[in-house]
Design a binder for these strands. Structure first.
Lengths: 337, 337
DNA sequence: TTTAAAAATGTCGACGTCGACATAATGGTG
DNA sequence: CACCATTATGTCGACGTCGACATTTTTAAA
């Protein structure tokens, strides 16, 4: 592999001059720069970042730690957002996965420290609170899709509460009065937040909430969830037309999909007999279901971008935002409501 | 940050001895090792990989290049497989994304070369043939979910053909005679392969293929696909019971889902009136649809693991497999067929 | 033309680690 | 106890780059 010295020799200048050209430093004569660039091209010289790193003590690498990437496939969008932002700053992205176990997590942090990572994005695939002690790792960190209320760690999360609010508001604005809500697993934070938003909107609109119309669509301990949205929807929809809700807000798109199946099974048309609104905007479902799903979008891509953005801010010593930043979940109108 | 010399000073040995302990080299006396480890712990010393890299000229980092991660969320499984295998070998994973543009791709290769990456996994999110000139990059590379027939580049891909075969075989084994196939976009390689497998099985079973029962569920140029599976299924299912297929094999799970909606709309029960088999096993769909979908699983996780495995083989100079390795797509039995 | 300021280039060494080699301590053997 | 084979530890320098500083060249003002 060619080094800066080979280039220097060929161009007939000192290695330091080549270094300057490579790093775009000022005060290089036009002629010298041309000669050096010529030599670089001829030798196909490629700088050695490791060497630079040893010298400068900055790696230009950001680490992304994820827990169980697998559960929510759409959280790839977070990765994509992060990546776009990171490569825009000419940095690189090292990723690692804790599989959810503390041992693995420790190993990952260790590896990152060995790489002298500039900063870390710690992303979870469910929006939830975590135990996080920044002092333990000593690397600037931004939490993604999770937060630590004890410590003052910057975090970027979706605004589930306002998402639920938006869904309810939309239903109300369309004239619905009989509104049901099939929630996520109550053990999940997002479940509570989305429902809170829903109830807030209902309250503000002066609509009463019928408690038998708020049903969990998922139950069971985390890791062994049981999907019961189909049954819940079936129950909601079997009563006489006058008695049943005219719209179901679903805790997520899978639940919404099951509602659609329940409706179809009962011979009810969506959205005419029963309107349905999802949550998350998992395209694979929301766009492919028939009719396509009106849903509240989780801004995963934005979250990734913002998180990386804040990390760079942190590194530059200029992160000014509130510690926990909530990104809006916009309603995406399609045809199911 | 502490260096090996700080540790050496504290332990009262030479830096070289510390290095030996850190790297687990033999011939260190029990006592010395203990003293050094004590010092390491006390100082919280963490080796500097960059420095090691400069010295040894091996980075211990594998690069993963993906194209548009976003389109097929489930291909995260590939990443997860790669990651598990890579961290098992105590290497790290640098990932970057080309967004599908040649400029970005060039940039990514360049960055990887600067990092002196040991090897590259080049993954595409659709199974297809690519133009790939290994001489251009000069880094050991394994292709993932794609292949280059011109050059002799190791590749790991799903065996779509046998997947289609398995689906058809399953249908046949269940006594179905009237079998329809709603394909992927004919422009996609997987479409042809899956269909080939289907036709092979039909041929072997002596069943004739009714051409009006093979319909595309997706059409249009790549990047602007139009989903028409719902309509296709509707057409297939509106004829009288004696005249219509008893089972539909779908090109993927989204298509299968649309078939289920079409069936429901026509008042047909799955699987009693019409059985449906998907492809891909996108859990978000296949497990959540009602009834859950019998489908052919794309072994994405395995593909990731195998690809990384082969890359390490390549690096160790011992990759012996056939250039293009096809991983089986097993049928996952659920309740839609 | 002289002169000072600015621009362009060069010299040297350090970053943290480990390879090559040298040396010292230890343990058996005859 | 001398001797040699191990085993254990140390010395030195190089890896490729860039920071600090020095030197030379150019430019422009006096």
């Amino acid at each position: 592999m060619q080094t800066i010295k080979d280039v220097a020799a060929l161009a007939g200048v000192s290695d330091r001059t080549v270094s300057r050209v490579v790093n775009g430093e000022p005060n290089i004569s036009r002629k010298t720069r041309a000669r050096v660039e010529e030599a670089i091209a001829r030798l196909n010289y490629i700088p050695n970042l490791a060497a630079r790193m040893v010298r400068t003590n900055r790696s230009g690498v950001i680490g992304l730690i994820t827990d169980v990437v697998t559960t929510t496939p759409n959280s790839v969008e977070i990765i994509r957002g992060v990546q776009d932002r990171v490569s825009q700053s000419n940095q690189s992205l090292l990723i690692a996965n804790t599989s959810g176990t503390p041992e693995e997590e420790a190993r990952v942090w260790r590896t990152f420290q060995e790489h002298r990572i500039d900063g870390v994005l710690f992303a979870t695939m469910y929006h939830h609170e975590i135990d996080f002690d920044p002092a333990l790792h000593n690397i600037p960190t931004v939490l993604v899709n999770c937060f630590a209320s004890a410590a003052q760690v910057p975090a970027v999360v979706p605004d589930d509460d306002n998402g639920g609010y938006a869904a309810a508001l939309y239903a109300i604005s369309k004239g619905h009065k009989r509104i049901a809500f099939i929630t996520l697993n109550p053990l999940i934070l997002a479940s509570r937040l989305r429902r809170d938003g829903f109830e807030r909107a209902m309250g503000e609109a002066g609509l009463s909430i019928r408690h038998e119309w708020i049903q969990p669509g998922i139950t069971g301990a985390i890791g062994e969830e049981i999907m019961c949205a189909f049954t819940a929807a079936q129950n909601l929809l079997t009563s006489a037309a006058k008695e049943r809700p005219t719209i179901i807000l679903a805790g997520n798109d899978e639940i919404a999909m099951q509602c659609m199946f329940a409706a179809a099974n009962l011979g009810l048309r969506v959205p005419d007999d029963i309107a349905i609104v999802g949550f998350d905007d998992f395209r694979m479902i929301s766009e492919q279901v028939v009719p396509p799903l009106t849903t509240v979008a989780l801004p995963y891509y934005q979250i990734g971008v913002r998180a990386a953005d804040r990390l760079f801010g942190l590194l530059a010593g200029s992160d000014v935002m509130p510690t926990i930043e909530r990104l809006p979940c916009p309603l995406v109108q399609r045809r199911s409501a």
